[in-house]
């Protein structure tokens, strides 16, 4: 048994919120640089240049990369040997988010009720996903999600007979319909299998994978490659103004599913795909 004070978790969450909103992870920076090399459209190339410059300015002048600093999505993988002390874990996470967004000059984008829409003033609550794993460590993955692209995401309950082609069509048509709204070049997180809610969660998790990594399953890795190729044939391009680079990556996670179903969750993320991880 290992004791961890929830304040340690809270401090870590605060730190991650601030850090990831001012500097993208290395994998995303690299993916954007590679995109600029492959873009053939003049305007597309120019826009990718602007995005690179934006990242530089954000870091140097301490201005958030994007004004939509997101709703904080927190994945907590908690070792079953861990015993939390010092208070309520969920409160601690939310306290970390509130401090990160307030002290880090980040935007407060959360409303207390989806219909009465009063801003909570500190960007809480976060969306927290808990998973109990082996060991005595806690892994925190923070992925603040912007809603320009979140609004373009969807769940498709396909039929088993739709197969691989059906999955590909679902992914490509989601990106096509998102067009310029999702701030391309996008990263596409896909969850295939499980149930209605499981595929959506897998899609979100897929976005936190290092961009450019491929699935460990060869047939899924092949599907990722095919989907990316077909998306980039759409010629939506950077900012939706035409070009070769519409998506930087398609990342797919899978789970066993029911004999009657083929659920597909498609979570689109803009080029400010923020994800950061720490282990405590």
């Amino acid at each position: 048994m290992r004791e961890i004070d929830v304040q340690t978790i809270s401090d870590a969450v605060r730190e991650l919120c601030i850090r990831i909103n001012y500097e993208l992870s290395g994998d995303m920076q690299e993916a954007l640089m590679k995109a600029a090399e492959t873009e053939t459209s003049e305007l597309g190339g120019k826009i990718l240049g602007i995005l690179e410059e934006n990242l530089k300015v954000a870091k140097e002048e301490q201005i958030p990369i994007c004004q939509d600093t997101g709703m904080a999505v927190v994945f907590l993988e908690i070792g079953q040997e861990v015993h939390f002390t010092g208070g309520d874990l969920e409160e601690a996470v939310n306290r970390g988010v509130a401090r990160g967004y307030t002290e880090g000059y980040l935007r407060k984008s959360v409303v207390r009720d989806p219909l009465d829409r009063v801003n909570t003033g500190d960007n809480t609550p976060a969306v927290i996903h808990y998973q109990i794993v082996q060991g005595d460590q806690v892994t925190i993955t923070l992925a603040p999600k912007g809603f320009g692209s979140e609004n373009m995401s969807r769940v498709c309950m396909l039929k088993p007979a739709d197969g691989e082609e059906g999955v590909l069509n679902a992914i490509v048509s989601a990106v096509k319909e998102a067009g310029p709204n999702a701030c391309p070049p996008v990263v596409v997180g896909v969850g295939i299998g499980g149930t209605f809610e499981k595929c959506a969660l897998l899609a979100k998790k897929a976005l936190t994978r290092p961009v450019g990594s491929t699935s460990g399953k060869p047939h899924i890795a092949e599907l990722e490659r095919k989907a990316l190729e077909r998306i980039n044939e759409l010629k939506i391009g950077p900012a939706g103004l035409g070009g070769r680079v519409t998506a930087l990556a398609v990342q797919i996670e899978t789970y066993p599913t029911h004999i009657a179903g083929l659920p597909v969750g498609i979570n689109i993320c803009c080029h400010v795909n923020r994800h950061i991880r720490t282990v405590i």
Binding site: E53, N54, L241
Partner: peptide, 13 residues
């Protein structure tokens, strides 16, 4: 008009 989405640091200048 469209401004470049996700370039908020640069545009703020």
């Amino acid at each position: 008009f469209a401004a470049v989405g996700g370039a908020g640091a640069l545009l703020s200048r």
